[in-house]
Amino acid sequence: MKIIVSVKRVIDYNVKVRVKTDNSDVDLTNVKMSLNPFCEIAVEEAIRLKEAGVASEIVVVSIGPNAVQEQLRTAMALGADRAIHIETEMQPEPLNVAKLLTKIVEAEEPGLVILGKQSIDSDNNQVGQMLAALTGWPQGTFASEVKIEDGKALVTREVDGGLRTLSLTLPAVVTTDLRLNEPRYAKLPDIMKAKRKPMEVKTPADLNVHLKKHISQLKVETPPQRQVGIKVDSVDALIDKLKNEAKIILRKLG
């Protein structure tokens, strides 16, 4: 079985973002960029499936400017076999990403596509579901465990209040949650080998996808700062503030 993993280059998880003074966007000049943490988990899961003999080949795909090749090399150093870079000037919107991936999936015919559940920059949490909808494949989102058995994917998902397991026919789309695995480190010899692994470059035009504008970002602001706290003088006053000012429901739910 072939697995496609789609990965995104994003601002490093540790970087504290600053909003530009003109409020047009956040300031990304010379900040550290890395693999999106959820995508790192997706790559790791694919490698584990390959090590377990379930998968035979791992293809990583990333969309964006030339710099995303750095993250594709990282994914190949970790264990992906080859890479496809879909070159665009900017990171496209989720629906456009899903359409591009659909074309790749149609051409590559994988048994499984694994993606991160969301990217930590735009926090959209959409691409995997959209890809599943466009391909008509079943989806197992926010996965904390993935097993392939008898031609089916058994996916345990993190849902509100617990875990839920689904059985999906293959091919299927899986998106990863944080607890699925702990990604490995890239080892030096593998980093060196990854430089020689194949990287194919395509454009949206090659794939016959028109990038349509659905949503525009008008403005970006710093969130309101936490108000300075107050002291209350009794338990009653505390409960009153929590209920009426902070609007906290002070009781057990369900």
């Binding site: 540790n14 890395s34 980093i191």
Partner: peptide
């Protein structure tokens, strides 16, 4: 790091690919 590896000054290495790994 690579040239140190080639000179056999180090026998194995991992490089952090994100600050989380760092």
């Amino acid at each position: 790091i690579t040239s140190a590896f080639e000179k056999e000054l180090l026998s194995d290495a991992v490089i952090a690919s994100s600050d989380a790994q760092r």
